[in-house]
């Protein structure tokens, strides 16, 4: 019998944790036997979401904020939730517009959400200004082609 599976981690919003965050989620996803390309997609999407927490959500925070990552496997689908309790997004539609960035001086390309969208089957962003943002990424993992 198959059981659903999940994990949850919290990390300080430090840039050095970006690589750990994407590695943790991709290692969890490995049990679904994803292709190398799918693993690459998952890593890129998680990296973008976690980087947003660090670069934007807690940019003006006097203390190091917390990033919470929850991943859940249900059947052949991976659901990844990345949550912060930072500044929130005033205009989600504008934030998701390719090439829009509120931080050009930090050399942000304005492509974070575009990368997440192209790497996932579904992207959901909910945000409350002053309270925080939650990004939910849904990735369907097709069974590897059997040779």
């Amino acid at each position: 019998m198959k059981h659903d599976n999940y994990f949850k981690i919290t990390l300080p919003a430090l840039s050095r944790n970006e690589s750990f965050a994407r590695a943790a989620v991709s290692a969890f996803a490995a049990q679904l036997d994803p292709t190398v390309d799918k693993i690459g997609d998952i890593k890129a999407a998680v990296s973008e979401a976690v980087t947003n927490c660090i670069v934007h959500a807690y940019a003006d925070s006097p203390v190091v904020g917390v990033v919470e990552i929850t991943a859940k496997i249900k059947d052949d689908t991976l659901y990844i939730k990345i949550r912060d309790k930072g500044c929130g997004i005033d205009d989600i539609k504008q934030a998701m517009t390719p090439l829009f960035t509120s931080k050009p001086e930090e050399e942000r390309a304005g492509l974070g959400f575009a990368v997440m969208e192209s790497c996932c089957d579904k992207l959901k962003v909910t945000s409350t200004p002053g309270k925080g943002t939650t990004v939910t990424l849904t990735v369907r993992l097709d069974k590897k082609e059997l040779a």
């Binding site: 890593k43 890129a44 990296s47 980087t51 942000r108 390309a109 304005g110 492509l111 974070g112 575009a114």
Partner: peptide, 13 residues
């Protein structure tokens, strides 16, 4: 071995 949009910011900058 891995690149996200930060690499694009790097190139454009």
């Amino acid at each position: 071995t891995f690149m996200d949009s930060s690499g694009i910011g790097l190139i454009l900058g």
